[in-house]
Amino acid sequence: MGIVEKSRLKSPWILHYDCSSCNGCDIEILACLTPYYDIERFGILSKGNPKHSDVLLVTGGVNHRNKTVLKNLYDQMPAPKVVIAIGACGSTGGIFHNCYNILGGADKIVPVDVYVPGCPPRPEAIIDGVVKALDKLKHLQNGTWKEPETGPIVVETAVGAKPAPAAKYANAAPAPTLNSQPTNKEA
């Protein structure tokens, strides 16, 4: 492992995007930053800016309004990058999955590498998700994005109950464009 790869693992910078979350997951993410969990000891910083970030945390289900935002944020992140879907809604759409305005989980729009289920997931699970995402970064070389061969990872929750496999990995699906038609009439 070269020095660049090593540094990559030692300094994952995070962008946190709240699609349409109830803020439960977001509070748990913020809890990770507190001295109690202190994720900065892994070199993790919350950057709030896609251009500086390596890891995208998505909470909440994607709806018609914020799908372009999510896509844009993902596109503005320089490779190599990983995406983590946080919580039930972020992973699948959760209890909102058949809501008229919800498309589903983050994987409908961007390729998700790690799912952290839970409603909300505990901070330990989120930290575990980030650490697992870093494993994926090991596969990347010289800054070029190599598709992970392992497929998406699902983090086991703290209580040990393995959730049902999340929605099908949507990497191959073309991302919706600005012109794609919403499926319902109201939107």
Binding site: Y17, K51, T68, V69, N72, D75, Q76
Partner: peptide, 9 residues
């Protein structure tokens, strides 16, 4: 090249 950052819009 990319667009300037403005919260994704």
């Amino acid at each position: 090249k990319t667009r300037p950052y403005s919260c994704g819009i």
